[in-house]
């Protein structure tokens, strides 16, 4: 990093607004891989953007806690149905109803 950049805490790669525009894609692993190192470099150098990314990561992590695993009973029923379907095809009444 150049002296000017260090003095003014500027990042030579992406600007804060550029990083803000792609931050969500970066956090979702949906950003073009060639852009990732530039975003990472900025997040390490810029305290505000780094904190913003950390906050969004915490939000995502908290949201993931809301994931509701299907009950074991439901999963067993659906697995049994799927396996029955794979081997024997749909039941007669379903095939007729759809025809």
């Amino acid at each position: 990093m150049s002296l000017l950049n260090r003095l003014f805490r500027r990042n030579p790669g992406m600007s804060c607004s550029q990083v803000e525009a792609v931050m969500q894609q970066y956090l979702d692993n949906e950003l073009d891989p060639s852009e990732v190192p530039k975003v990472l470099a900025h997040l390490e150098a810029c305290k505000d953007c780094g904190l913003e990314a950390e906050l969004y990561t915490r939000i995502q992590s908290s949201l993931r806690e809301h994931q509701q695993a299907p009950s074991a009973d439901s999963m067993d029923r659906i697995r049994a149905l799927a396996q029955e379907l794979a081997v024997n095809g749909p039941p007669e009444d379903a095939a007729t109803a759809d025809a």
Binding site: Q67, Q68, A69, P70, S74, M75, I78, R79, A82, Q83, L85, A86
Partner: peptide
């Protein structure tokens, strides 16, 4: 095809 493509996705489908 069902075994290969559908069965591995059952939990995602349920969620």
């Amino acid at each position: 095809g069902f075994n290969k493509y559908v069965l591995p996705e059952l939990e995602v489908l349920m969620r």
